[in-house]
Design a protein around this nucleic acid. Structure first.
Lengths: 252, 252
DNA sequence: CAGTGGTCTAGACCACTTC
DNA sequence: AAGTGGTCTAGACCACTGC
């Protein structure tokens, strides 16, 4: 016996978690992204195809995709389709670098890798990963310059299980952004990050590489970056000279 | 001659700007907010009422409201209705104060108003308003303490045309947040802000009020806050001690 | 119980990209 | 011309609030 007008919430089979349909589908998409079924830059199926696959309406698929687009995990291109977001795009170039000059403009940076080694890390580094003092990390040290002047000195720490193959040669041969490299060579896409900002006197190494007086206050920025599923995959500690540049933030 | 199925984009009268319908309606709502037709905390008409008023479907109204909700201009309460966002709520208490302690927690602050005068302002203050060196501003100086220790010293500048009536007595009698006061006494609702952050040596006044050494680096935070329509309505310059606290930011 | 926002559907048509 | 996302509608039902 089939009624013409079906009742709406007919989830007779495997009701997930009392989440609305679009949220359940969003979770499935997140799993596809996390598992690498959908890879950075790739085209995903059309909304109508997905609607057919999951046996829901286009509107429900749209709402799931909408939220992922707002989180910068997917990108829509009218006429072409929906794609997995990537750090290769021009657009995302400065998403994770909140640094501007006095005029409020972003500038092109020149980056120099100072070292890339495998070693143990301090507690502030291994703690966010729930790892231990003996665990080995990839350690990158980098200097960023603007108009030829060094401005940012940073130490970047990556867990070996994911980034063990990273070498100095690879870093130096890579022209794009670091997150673009992580994505294309290690399949790790950074989705968001948390930063803690302090004013400090520069470390001895920062004094040396940034070529500044040891009494010049600098911004100290501690970042933990995450991939899909809120999984931490990078810790970095940076010092910024803030005489001709500043950290900017929009509160909305 | 009337067809049963009307054609969809029948904007025969006054086609606005080639914006989609929901965007046109969103603009009308923004005008209502800006003009004070809808005031902070008030209930706005139901979605079905609005749909009838503007002769569109509920879905179109929803999409317009959705965007305003995401911008924190409106708040939905299922079963009750949709309300104009306000700074009186507990939720928005720390939206504009990105300050946490070493454990990453927000703390309750004790605020002390040091002065409230009417005077001319420096260029960095009047420039964002497109005003002039001779124009008079309300100038508030404030000290914020956490657990009894002074942490934030700030100068706040407000244009007289809007805030001329602000007095020291009013400030001291007000228990809530500053933005809550601006909203309830002057009808000015802050919607967003931009901050520029530097590391500097503290000003002489900051040294005095924060009770710190003049060589201790502090965060210097320059903020311009805006109301509806991207209109700047406040400039503040703050210095934060960042030894036991930090500025935090989430990049997403 | 009436009214509100929240979810979901089915279907139409528009705007854009690609071939 | 075919296919994709973007807009819009009309209507149903669910979940919650307040009287």
């Amino acid at each position: 016996m089939i009624s013409i007008m079906q009742t709406k919430y007919d989830n007779s089979s495997e009701k997930h978690l009392d989440l609305p349909l679009y949220a359940q589908i969003k979770l499935k998409f997140l799993i596809a992204l996390e598992a690498g079924v959908w890879k950075a830059g790739e085209l995903i199926p059309s909304e109508l195809d997905l609607a057919a696959s999951y046996e829901v309406s286009q509107g429900t698929i749209r709402k799931a995709i909408d939220e992922l687009v707002r989180q910068h995990l997917l990108i829509r291109r009218q006429g072409s389709g929906t794609f997995v977001a990537t750090h290769q795009e021009e657009q995302s170039k400065y998403r994770f670098l909140h640094l501007a000059n006095s005029a409020g403009e972003m500038e092109e940076s020149q980056n120099k890798i100072l070292l890339c080694t495998h070693q143990k890390a301090p507690k502030v580094v291994y703690a966010p990963f729930n790892m231990h003092a003996e665990d080995i990390f990839v350690h990158i040290r980098r200097l960023m310059s603007f108009s030829g002047k060094p401005v940012v000195f940073e130490d970047i720490w990556l867990p070996c299980p994911l980034f063990g193959d990273l070498t100095l040669e690879l870093l130096e041969s890579w022209a794009g952004s670091l997150y673009g490299l992580f994505e294309s060579h290690f399949g790790v896409h950074m989705t968001h990050a948390e930063e803690r900002i302090r004013a400090v006197l520069p470390s001895n190494l920062a004094v040396e590489y940034l070529e500044i007086d040891q009494l010049l206050p600098v911004l100290d920025i501690f970042r933990v970056a995450y991939t899909y599923g809120d999984k931490p995959v990078e810790v970095r500690q940076a010092q910024y000279i803030s005489t001709e540049h500043h950290y900017f933030n929009r509160i909305s």
